[in-house]
Each structure stands twice: as C-alpha cells, then as structure tokens.
Design a protein around this nucleic acid. Structure first.
Lengths: 332, 332
DNA sequence: TTGAAAGCGCTACCAC
DNA sequence: GTGGTAGCGCTTTCAA
C-alpha cells in the first residue's frame, strides 16, 4: 500500500504548479497541447488516480445520485435499478442505493444519509408506509437538489415523476375480463394509502360503470399482496366469482394454486407486474406489464434534464407510461 | 435553496470554536455534557446537516463500499445486493452500485470509477469475460482497500471470498438423478473460463465415476444459458437421454418447454439457482439453491471484518456455502 | 499560457 | 475541557 499520488506529485515532477496539472487533466483550453501531454503521460506513469472526493468538496457536485426503493430484491425494482444504472453511468453518474423495506422511518433515514453524502439528486419510490408524511422529501427540494419520484409517487409533491397510468391499468384489466364475457368480477385491492393502488381501483370501477355492471364498489375486496395473501383471499370467499383481478402476480399465483387444489379452475385470474415467472406458470398468467426498463430510463432522463436547469422545479415533467395488457391462458 | 449550515455557523452562534462543535457532534469524551447538549440543540435548531464528503476527505474513510455485479436485474444478484445493503447499512456503510453487463472492459471501468470515488472497499462478482485478466483488482489490493469476491471468484486472487461449493453442487445434482435410477444423464456446461462452472462440471464427473457410470466426460455438452439456449440444446440432440442437468433454471425451463411441445416429457430436467419461478412452473423444477441472502450477509461480514484489521489480506477467509438440493416434480 | 493562493467543510494534533 | 490551526486533494479566481 503505497502513498497516494496527487497532482502535487505530478506538479513537482514536472516543475509546474498544481493549477497547471489540474487544468491539463481537465482538458482546459488555456493549456498548451504539449503541457497537457506531458501531464497526462506523467499521470499515467505515476499511476495517478484522481480523488473525486476532493473535487466534489470543492465543486459541490458529486456525480452521485441516491436511489431509494422499497427492496432491490423485488423484480420490478431490480429492473428499474438496472435500467437507471445503465443510463446514468453513461452520463458519468454513480448510484448510491438505499432500501427502505417499506418502512417510513427507514425512508427518512435514507434521505438523510443520502443528503449527507451530498448526492446530486434522489430518485425514489415511496414505501407503503409513506402516507402523507413526505417532509423528508421537502428537505431535498429545499436544498435545491433534484428529486424524481417513480411508480409510487405522491401527488402532494410537485416534482418530476415517472409513473404508470394506473387508472388505465385498472380499467384495462377490467375491460379485458368484461370483453371476455365475465360479468362477476372481483377486484382485490391492496392498501389504499398509496395513490397507485387507489387510481387503479378507480380505473376498475370506471370500466364496470362503462360496461353497465351494477354496484362496482361491491366488487372490491381488500387483501394482502403475497402468494399466501392470494390463497387466503380465495379461502375467505363464500362464492367464487367468474374472474378475479389480483393485486400483483404473486397474489394471482396464490389464487391460482388455491383454486387448482380445489379442482376448480373455472375462475379467470389476472395479476399486475408481469413478473418473470408469470409467463411460465400453468396456466400462464394474464397480467399488466409495467415497463420497468422504460421507467428507469425515463427517471434517468428526467434527472439529467434537471441537472442542466436552473429552476429545476419549474413545470416538473410528469411522465406517464402506458400499461400493457399481456393476455395469457389464465383468463382464457 | 438556502446556504448550507456548517459547523462554523454553529460555532459562531454559540461563541465556541469549530473544534468544539466538531467534537461535540462526534460525541468526543473530552467535551462536557452541557456543551454537547448546547451544540446538538443548536445544530438541530439551525437544521444542520453534516457534509460527509469533507469528513471523508480528511479522514480517508468514506463509509461507502462499491458493489460490482454483472447485472442487478438477475434475481440472484438482486437478492445478494438486497442482503448486502441491509447488513452494511446497519454498520453505517452505503452501497455504490456498478453493473458490468458481463463485460471485462466495463468491469475495469467500474473498479476505476469506484476507486476514484474513494470507496472503502469493493465487493464483486466477476463478469463472464473476466478470464485471467484481473489486474484491475490487483490495483484495489495495492491500494490497501478491502476486496471481497463472491459467487464468481478468481482462484488466482488470494482475497476473502464467499462462494458456493460448486463441486458439491454438481455432484449433488448428478447424485440426485443417479439415485432416482437415471443412468443416461446429460450435463449441459456453460462457458468454462469461469471457475464456478468448471468446478461444478468436475463434481458431476466425480459423481458419475463414483456411481460407476462409464465415460462421464462424454455426457458433457456445451450450451448457452437462456431459455432459448435450453430449447436449442434439446433440438440439437439426436437421442434424448433419461435426464439432463441444465446450466441454470432458465435454461432448464427452455428444455422443459421444448420437450413438452414434443409431447415428450419422459426426460427429467433440473437446473441451478432456484429462481422465483422454478417452484411455480409445470412441472415444478428440481434445482440447486445458491443461498443469495446468506451470500450477501457473509460478504458484508467479511468486509466488516477486514475494515477492523491492519493486514487485511493475511489469511483471507474463504467462505464456502453449501448448495441445497431442492427436489421437485421435474425429476420425479 | 502558467503561477499563486484561497478555500470547499471537516478532523485532529498541539497548546493552554 | 476548549481553542487555534494545519491540512485532506482538488478547483478556480486573480495576477502576471
């Protein structure tokens, strides 16, 4: 472990000043070609590696962006992170990852930690617990740093965001089943504090109204998002409907399994998210694709846009991606 | 966007020096209780947020650790990342993420970027292209920074690592099939430059020898890891064997689908990785569980261990996790 | 085109 | 128990 080489070492070696070295390394136009070459050669020769920390401290830019997600293990978020990293990396930004595990407290801590790390911005998807308390995100804005929300956003925050058209997603799901001729459709609603689930539910209701199904509100049952939640949902029903819209693909899977064990496969089931497995289970699952790759890409774009502007929160762009209906066997 | 509050502001307000403020904030024992309280109250009142960058520049510790993976979208790596972040966060460390997309060039760039960001260490899983050129990792070691390799490690690097007992994994897979009475077993081998695949293959061969199956080397066919790769593998066979060990679960899935379309399900198929979907496809897939959560946890532990030692590369600990055979319907 | 020097915000050593 | 101050490695303004 040798001592680190700094621009001072290069300067001394070349009998110039650090200013010159710094400028040469940064390709400043006020430095002669020869000097630049000399400096670069020496830097390479001495195995120089810049300390970005020092540069950041001085310049105020870290070229690091904090990403806050409920869990990096969930396929959807994993894909978004993957996409973000790819698109941000090419613009010179690194990603500092923080998982909230669906806890508001953890989310607050995450924002605090990331701000202390002096990230240039934060891209976040809210935890399930984040109902109305978004004060921690106001701090991000107050500091003049870029904030981009995705998927699970909060309407009270006028910041750039990338979301799915959840209303339409709910509407599409219902319409698909209605067009298939199913009349008795049950809708499984997850917690309602999150806008994404609320809007989706509203889309469902709207579709039923448009198709003249009476009392759509009565079709809504609450449930838990998980395979077991899907099983429980079925068990708790007195009569089986013709079709069920589950809160996500895992829940839909649980429902399908529970139904199969009862030798009763006559119920159409669909999910949300288009997980990797959904195509491969039996029956293959009809679901709504949420475009995680596109979402990550758009988040990166919005952030990079902001990093070029002065008044970053003027007219925040709200990208709304279109849900895509993926028809498969489970609603045949 | 107000000007940032620094310890100078707090010091001025309280008529003390920055040393006092710094020490009070860091809970130094040489500061009186009263002063600490005053400082903390004032810090809170002024909405002070420390600039970790400055602290890092001075102290040389960033409490940030670089994580290099082929892709954060792959379930296995997503789970490891999830686990690492959880375990490292509680020790005060943040994760700077870098994806190589299986490219050596990108991996080198990643190491460079992370080192420039002054990470305290790097936890990495090698790209498929990283055959023998690991010079970039030597640079990490040369700088005296902690390096931990996981899953896809490199035997030439004597650094702490967390891997699966791949030999045993291959052995277990073969043994499972042999015990089921299958004699004609085909083994699909992915690229061989990566130690993990080589050792696994050797385990397979050893098992066949132990069970007195002649010419085990002839049972090995090379193939590509993907659903399509699995389909192609089947198509390219002249005769179907009794059982096949695929390179991973996706490939196994491709094989199963190809076989199903031929109305020929008499071939037992198993995979590696225990993906989320493997339990839910039909037939459910026998596979080898690679314990990603445990792996992430152990990586975190090894890193934290190193961060406490002086000679961090003395007797590097090599954690080898046991593969777990998950028996399911596909090899019934 | 290059040099000198201030300073980003914090820590830690040396005084007192 | 507290103060003074020299840097950490870099950028950038002002001079020359």
């Amino acid at each position: 472990m040798k001592k680190k080489v700094t621009i001072y070492d290069i300067a001394r070696e070349l009998n110039v000043t650090v200013s010159t070295v710094s400028r040469a390394l940064n390709d400043s136009k006020s430095i002669s070609k020869e000097t630049k070459e000399q400096v670069r050669d020496m830097a390479k020769k001495m195995n120089y590696s810049p300390n970005k920390l020092a540069a950041s401290l001085k310049s105020g830019k870290t070229f690091t962006i904090g990403v806050i997600v409920p869990s990096a293990r969930v396929q959807f978020f994993a894909s978004v992170i993957h996409s973000m990293e790819d698109h941000l990396k090419s613009a010179g930004y690194g990603i500092l990852l923080y998982q909230t595990n669906e806890s508001l407290e953890s989310e607050k801590q995450g924002v605090k930690t990331l701000l202390e790390a002096q990230v240039d911005g934060i891209i976040a998807s809210l935890s399930l617990e984040t109902e109305t308390d978004v004060s921690h995100f106001h701090e991000v804005i107050r500091q003049g740093k870029a904030l981009v929300l995705f998927d699970r956003s909060f309407e009270g925050l006028t910041v750039p965001s990338v979301t799915l058209n959840d209303f339409k997603a709910g509407y599409m799901a219902a319409e698909h089943l209605l067009k298939k001729g199913f009349k008795e459709i049950l809708y499984m609603a997850p917690v309602q504090n999150i806008g994404i689930f609320r809007r989706r539910k509203e889309g469902f209701i709207a579709a039923l109204k448009d198709y003249c199904v009476p009392n759509p509100e009565e079709k809504i049952h609450y449930g838990t998002l998980s395979i077991e939640g899907g099983r429980t949902f079925i068990r708790d029903l007195n009569d089986l409907p013709q079709a069920i819209i589950a809160g996500d693909d895992f829940t839909a899977l649980g429902m399908l399994r529970e139904l199969q064990e009862r030798k009763n496969e006559k119920v159409a089931v669909m999910g949300f998210a288009n997980e990797v497995f959904s195509e491969f289970i039996t029956p293959s699952l009809t679901t709504i694709e949420q475009q995680p790759y596109k979402m990550g890409q758009e988040c990166a774009r919005l952030f990079l846009n902001m990093s070029q502007k002065n008044n970053i929160y003027d007219n925040p762009e709200e990208v709304v991606l279109e849900p895509i209906l993926v028809k498969r066997a489970s609603t045949k």
